[in-house]
Structures are given as structure tokens and as C-alpha cells.
């Protein structure tokens, strides 16, 4: 396992170029555009020139570009993503700390939903390969992927909230319910503090956003599980299991396990798409996470915040692929580092 640890450390180092490249990309785009970000953030509000100059100085915008580039980078290492252009003195890192747990909770729930639906539909299609059900699942996998998240979310709200009145339309928790925040993941917080009222309410709020994002992302798993499982089901080792008299249900399980390896390798990329989809989901459901934050900051033209979000997400993407690699190594004994 020492080999594995070394491999993962090496993979962790690979996060650095990813972050650097995305940061550089955003930095370049922000600086080559004519116009002054401070002025842009202030919009049409009149601010005296000397105060404008002060603001520029404060955000380091008067320094040479390379100084700006490296100073920000030096900050990122200390988890400092700069200050808001709009709200004076507000640290972007603090905003992220406030908002990210909501996104994390949504992402985890959606991930579970997407893998659950994707596996179920993919297994059905593979086991009944060539049947009408198989065709239906294939159509599902394509259509699910083409659904526009805010649209699907709105339709689910219409059905489950407005017509059936079963679930709340937006937010994370009824404001009348108090919950002690420990991790920022409300479901987890409610369980930790044994606050069952809050747990029920937090789950009810989570259902529709997670379902929306989960459905859209599930199509990719449907097709992947279908393709790999139907291949595994006619493979030699499955026939060998059968020849030893192993029950079909157990064989299906073994075939499934083998077909999951390519699925796991896909998960890293899927998680990135999930983070992107979360942005739209949050906006639809007024979910107070990074996505809503991004929309607020785009509307306020708070470019340091936008830049901070991109750099932060590039870290997250790297971290996710690291976790996926670790899972991959755990389930496939052939991997030896």
C-alpha cells in the first residue's frame, strides 16, 4: 500500500498544473479585456476619481501584470482568493466557506441519485438486451442528457410542489426551523445534533434539486453500465462461473462488479459535469451554494469573485479525480503502483 500512497501523492501533484492553467486562462482573459474592472463593478454609480484610484491600489490593479499574477497565486496557496470588488473588505475565501457546503451537499445527493438511476436503468437494459425495454432505456439515456436543468427543475416543482404540494419549492431549510451548523451539510448536521424535525425538512428540500441534477446526469451512467455489463455478461469468465454451477443472480453481481471499473474511471469527469450542473440547479431552486453565488457575482460584475470561483473549482476537480483514482485502485487488484 506504500506504492499506492506514493502514486496518489504523485497524482496530487498533478493538481497543481491544472489549477495553474485554469488560473492563467482566467487571468489572461480578465486582463486583456479593455476597461477597468473596478469601474465595471461600480457600474453607473459615480465615484470620485481619487477614490477610484484608492480602490485600484487596494486591489493591486496598479501593479505590473506579473506582480498581480504572482501575488494572487501566493494568496491562493494560503486559501486566500482576494477581496470582493463590490463589498469592501469582504474576503472571497469567506464567501466560499459559507457557500460551498450547500453545493457539496447537493452534489453528493445528486451523485447518489444519478448513479442509482443510471445503474438501475443500465442493468435493466443489459439484462434485457435487444428488447423493447432496452430501446426505451437507450432513448432515456439520450433524452435525460438533453434536458435543460432549470426546465426539468421547474417541471418537477410544478408537479411535486405546486400541484401535489408534497415538497418545498426552494431553499435548504424552513426558516422557522433552527439547526445548529456544524459541517454546513444540513442533513449531516441534523443527524449529528439528532434534530429530526430539521432532518425531515432538510431532506424534503433536498429531494427535488437532487432529483433534477441526478436525472440529467444519470443518462451517462445508463449507457456506460449497459455497454459494459452486456459485454461482461457474455464474457468467458461469466461462462466459467456458470460452468461451476454458480447461481445466475450471483453471476450478475460479479459481472456488474467487473463492468463498474470503466464506470468508476468515468466518475471523475461526471463529477465535474455535476459541479457545473449544480450551478444551474442552485439558481433554479434558490439553493444558497456556489452556483447562486456565481450568478450573484456575475450580475454584480465582481470579477475577483468570479476568478476565485474558477480557481476554487479547479482545486475541487483535481481533488475529485484524486479520490476517483483511489477508489479505482481499491476495486481493481490488477493496479499495482
Amino acid at each position: 500500500m506504500a506504492g499506492l500512497a506514493r502514486y496518489l501523492l504523485l497524482r496530487a501533484l498533478l493538481i497543481i498544473p491544472t489549477v495553474l492553467i485554469l488560473y492563467t486562462l482566467v487571468f489572461v482573459i480578465m486582463r486583456v479585456i479593455p476597461g477597468d474592472p473596478v469601474q465595471a463593478a461600480l457600474g453607473t454609480r459615480y465615484v470620485p476619481p481619487e477614490q477610484l484610484e484608492l480602490l485600484r491600489e487596494r486591489h493591486g490593479l496598479n501593479d505590473p501584470l506579473y506582480v498581480q499574477y504572482f501575488e494572487y497565486l501566493a494568496g491562493v496557496v494560503r486559501f486566500d482568493f482576494g477581496e470582493s470588488l463590490v463589498i469592501e473588505g469582504r474576503k472571497i475565501a469567506d464567501d466560499i466557506k459559507d457557500r460551498f457546503p450547500a453545493t457539496l451537499e447537493l452534489t453528493i445527493a445528486s451523485f447518489i441519485v444519478s448513479v442509482g438511476i443510471g445503474m438501475a436503468t443500465g442493468i435493466l437494459a443489459a439484462v434485457r438486451r435487444g428488447s423493447k425495454l432496452d430501446t426505451a432505456m437507450r432513448v432515456y439515456s439520450i433524452v435525460a442528457y438533453t434536458l435543460f436543468i432549470p426546465w426539468l427543475g421547474s417541471i418537477l416543482i410544478m408537479i411535486f410542489s405546486l400541484w401535489l404540494g408534497l415538497l418545498p419549492t426552494h431553499g435548504r431549510l424552513d426558516p422557522r426551523i433552527s439547526l445548529e451548523h456544524k459541517t454546513g451539510l444540513y442533513v449531516l448536521d441534523a443527524i449529528l445534533t439528532q434534530n429530526w424535525v430539521a432532518l425531515k425538512d432538510a431532506l424534503a428540500h433536498l429531494v427535488l434539486p437532487a432529483l433534477t441534477l441526478g436525472i440529467v446526469l444519470s443518462g451517462a451512467y445508463t449507457r456506460l453500465v449497459r455497454a459494459n455489463l452486456s459485454e461482461a455478461l457474455v464474457s468467458d469468465f461469466v461462462r466459467a462461473y456458470r460452468a461451476r454451477g454458480v447461481r445466475e443472480r450471483r453471476i450478475l453481481l460479479h459481472a456488474l462488479r467487473n463492468s463498474l471499473i470503466p464506470v468508476v474511471t468515468m466518475m471523475g469527469l461526471q463529477m465535474a459535469i455535476l459541479l457545473g450542473g449544480a450551478v444551474l440547479t442552485e439558481t433554479t431552486f434558490s439553493w444558497p451554494g456556489m452556483g447562486s453565488y456565481l450568478l450573484e457575482k456575475v450580475e454584480a460584475r465582481d470579477y475577483t469573485a468570479v476568478q476565485g470561483v474558477v480557481v476554487f473549482f479547479s482545486f475541487m476537480v483535481g481533488l475529485i479525480s484524486l479520490i476517483v483514482d483511489a477508489i479505482y485502485a481499491l476495486i481493481d487488484p490488477r493496479i499495482r503502483y
Partner: peptide
């Protein structure tokens, strides 16, 4: 079977 390389579950 013919091919022992593929007839065992690799996992």
C-alpha cells in the same frame, strides 16, 4: 475452457 486468461474473474 480454451482461454485461461479470460476465464477467471480478474477482480
Amino acid at each position: 475452457f480454451q482461454d485461461p486468461l479470460t476465464s477467471l474473474d480478474p477482480l
